[in-house]
């Protein structure tokens, strides 16, 4: 679980609680609390990249075929991609309890 990585003692905390390593948020898998996940219908997708642009977590990456594929380790399930998709190619599916 992501939070375990943050469990350090007060003596180990960086000065001023600064983050000293650029881009280290990648190490924190923040996608573990979503209640729904985006599911792509490749039949409908026109590869316009709107999902990639709007995702606030930058969870999408383009694959070899040109589709935008979500990384569920970081997706928080907000549904913005689904909302912005002009082709209704992304449906939000509830996470299993």
């Amino acid at each position: 679980m992501a939070v375990k990585d943050a469990i350090i003692g007060w003596k180990q905390l960086p000065h001023g609680c600064f983050v000293l390593e650029p881009g280290n948020s990648e190490k924190f898998k923040t996608g573990d609390w979503k209640s729904q996940r985006p599911v792509l219908d490749k039949e409908k997708c026109i590869k316009c990249a709107m999902c990639w642009i709007f995702c606030p977590e930058m969870a999408y990456t383009k694959n070899a075929e040109g589709f935008y594929i979500v990384n569920l380790d970081y997706c928080k399930g907000c549904g913005i991609c689904s909302n912005e998709c002009p082709k209704d190619a992304i449906s939000m599916v509830p996470e299993e309890a």
Binding site: V3, A6, I7, I8, G9, W10, L13, G16, C17, F18, V19, L20, P22
Partner: peptide, 15 residues
């Protein structure tokens, strides 16, 4: 460096 980031409950006390 990043300054002024969030302190989740696992960090706030230590901070």
């Amino acid at each position: 460096v990043s300054m002024g980031t969030v302190g989740i409950p696992e960090v706030y006390t230590e901070a």
